[in-house]
Design a binder for these strands. Structure first.
Length: 419
RNA sequence: GGAGAGGUGGCGGAGUGGUCGAUCGCGUCGGUCUCGAAAACCGAAGUACUCGCAAGGGUACCGUGGGUUCGAAUCCCACCCUCUCCGCCA
């Protein structure tokens, strides 16, 4: 959601910002609606004022038993001019809100131009891409060879884009999630949350999944399955005026995420890279405006430390304009190197949305006389399913066994390798 | 799912058609008093939109949305949520 007042004063700048997103100029349509709306407000309020004064006068006349005066006042013509104006006003208001809420966030100034991921910028890298000379296998080859990863059965149970994990591999998934959650809720200072996995439409609107991206969601009854824990965690402060968050509010949760993958038919169909259901440890921070940039760096570092501790090779990408998501002002993607695929694949996405979600959610804090929108940030810390893939492919041995990262040993009941 | 009760300002709790944005108590903030504090007393204090250079106006908001009425926190309808009891259930 955009600040209509800012658009009013910076119409050209707003159009320029939308142009960076590849969108045509919007401001004149917005300002036309806004002018209509404000004009209607003046009319409606004037009519309301007149009505109130009249009603009050009748009440007072009745109070002192002046029936003649009551009669006289009641006799006046009722102007229902207001009613049609009220309807026009409601309509304009809805149109304006629809338009404003359908437009993506304004990008941070440092975001590079570019249409797709080829214009993303690598900011840092940890480790060198491994190309084992024994011919590295992909994660599903490894998992299936171990007899612990079963796509066929999952297909029978549910359909494509599901998997059944068994034995040590099922435990590995649990271990990864537990360890990440422990790391973030412990040393990294995030508050662990167990949120609802089904949320209503207003909640999804708050974080920006609705109304534009409904086809990406699974829906059951009048509730939606969360596509990420970002949704419930960020909405923890929705509709609230919180105390000034001098220290950012930091929340983390390990939850399943559900995505319909509507637009990605045929992409990454093999393996568990792109599933309808996956576990993810999510990080969400609520900050004052002046703190969000530093918090973005901190959050991303927390996710990077996870990858490093798992012995993975990773790099941080600053997403270009065309690759930055709808609600984000700035996004860092973390990509891990998958030796089996010989490719960098996204494993975490850390975004600063500035006040974009806060405005939709109406999440604010008090500072002196002012009520200020918070800034919200979210990041994966990290996607469990993809972390599992990365661990398998990175730590595979020539014989097809997997050497488990040391940090996971306690979570694996002492098991140090698979196979 | 069935029956009942209820949703009012930070909290508690009045208010069943009229000058109610809302009595009162607690809490909070400012002041007086005090060496300082407490107590007491005085005062302030919601959110949003909108008009205005400003000072300062206006309008709306008593779970949400409709309706009745000159006038709704109060009456009617629908929905949501909470609580109690019953049933079912991980």
């Amino acid at each position: 959601m955009h600040d209509i007042r800012w658009i009013r004063q910076n119409a050209e700048a707003f159009d320029a910002e939308m142009a960076r997103r590849g969108l045509p100029a919007q401001s004149s349509a917005i300002l036309t609606l806004d002018a209509f709306r404000r004009d209607a407000i003046l009319k409606v309020e004037a009519a309301q004022k007149a009505r109130n004064e009249r009603a009050k006068a009748i009440g007072m006349a009745k109070g002192r038993g002046d029936t003649a005066e009551v009669e006289r006042l009641m006799g006046g013509i009722v102007e229902d001019l207001a009613q049609s104006t009220v309807e026009v006003l409601a309509q304009r208001e809805a149109e304006l809100t629809d338009l404003l809420s359908s437009l993506p966030n304004i990008l941070a100034p440092e975001i590079p131009e570019g249409a797709d991921e080829s214009a993303n910028i690598t900011l840092r890298q940890h480790g060198e891409p491994a190309r084992p000379n024994f011919g590295a296998k992909q994660h599903f080859e490894l998992g299936e060879a171990l007899g612990l990863m079963d796509f066929e059965t999952a297909g029978r149970l549910s359909g494509s884009r599901f998997v059944v994990l068994k034995g040590a591999l099922a435990r590995l998934e649990r271990a990864l999630g537990q360890w990440m959650l422990d790391t973030h809720s412990g040393p990294n200072g995030y508050t662990e949350v167990a949120p609802p996995l089904l949320v209503n439409a207003a909640t999804l609107y708050g974080t920006g999944q609705l109304p534009k991206f409904e086809e990406d969601l699974f829906k059951t009854g009048d509730k939606y399955l969360i596509p990420t824990a970002e949704v419930p965690l960020t909405n923890l402060v929705a509709q609230q005026i919180i105390p000034e968050p001098v220290e950012p509010l930091r929340y983390t949760a390990l939850t399943p995420s559900f995505r319909s993958e509507a637009g990605s038919a045929g992409r990454d169909t093999r393996g568990m890279l792109r599933q309808h259901q996956f576990h993810k440890v999510e990080l969400v921070s609520i900050t004052r405006p002046e703190d969000s940039e530093a918090e973005h760096e901190r959050m991303t570092s927390c996710a990077e430390a996870i990858l490093t501790a798992l012995g993975l090779t990773w790099r941080r990408q600053l997403l270009c304009a065309g690759d930055t998501g709808f609600g984000a002002a700035k996004t860092y993607d973390l990509e891990v190197w998958l030796p089996g695929q010989a490719a960098w694949r996204e494993i975490s996405s850390c975004s600063n949305t500035h006040a974009f979600q806060a405005r939709r959610m109406n999440a604010r804090f008090k500072r002196g006389k002012d009520t200020v929108f918070v800034h919200t940030l979210n990041g994966s810390g990290v996607a469990v399913g993809r972390a599992l893939i990365a661990v398998l492919e990175t730590h595979q041995q020539e014989d097809g066994s997997i050497a488990l990262p040391e940090v996971l040993h306690p979570y694996m009941g002492g098991l140090t390798r698979l196979g």
